[in-house]
Write a protein that binds this DNA or RNA. Structure first.
Lengths: 113, 113
DNA sequence: ACTCATGATGTAGACAATCTACGTCATATG
DNA sequence: CATATGACGTAGATTGTCTACATCATGAGT
């Protein structure tokens, strides 16, 4: 069913930024990152697994984050990501890019009069 | 050349909103709409023709804008678009969607502390 | 024992929107 | 009469997100 689903598609272009920003607090695994973003945004931003993992692999491939498998005492495995140095630089870039877009769109929405 | 171009891709998801908002001032043709957005955003938002016209056709197909060919005295033809009633409703929807995204991203970027 | 929820990772394929790079036609300018 | 500019447009590549599926382990309920 759900042929006429509400269509999220809200995230486009911002997901990388959100992930990088989240990792500033320290290493975390995918599920935790998604959970954090959802919580902090008060449920406005929900990241599907089909967006999350490709994004993480993408960021890793670009060298902005680095990963390490960790296994807990109970045999639970999880892949922990940390921000690299270039990732930190990229975060600044993306943050200012977002700022730019935000200001520009706001200008169009409520023009100076 | 230009293999490592800076990559705009800035607009994703906001273009429809920007066009609808621009048409609130009254009917306009494509080129003028793009010019208006570029001017008001102080050159931050530049709409390529390959984005502009598909977007206009898309909006028209959805019934949010309506078009009419006009030919000036000099034989200059241009396609004028106006906002329809449903387009006006859609503008409200998209505006609040943008607001939502904006607030949510801002929350993630600088969390309440 | 068995099932089911949940936490964690992942992939395949559909879909949508933008961009780059073309191309047309008419008018105006030098 | 060539070139710039204003106006419209399309084709194809690229990219990012989504839906839907799949795996594996643990913990809880019955």
């Amino acid at each position: 069913m759900t042929p006429a689903s509400p269509r999220n598609q809200l995230l486009y272009g911002t997901l990388d930024l959100l992930i990088l920003r989240t990792l500033v607090y320290g290493p975390a695994h995918g599920h935790a990152i998604a959970g954090h973003i959802q919580r902090v945004s008060e449920d406005a931003l929900r990241i599907e697994t089909g967006s999350l993992y490709p994004a993480l692999h993408r960021l890793e491939a670009r060298g902005w984050i680095a990963a390490k498998w960790k296994t807990s005492d109970k045999g639970k495995r999880a892949r922990y990501y940390r921000l690299t140095r270039t990732g930190r630089r990229q975060l600044v870039v993306e943050q200012s890019r977002w700022q730019q877009l935000s200001v520009a769109v706001t200008r169009v929405l409520r023009p100076a009069d």
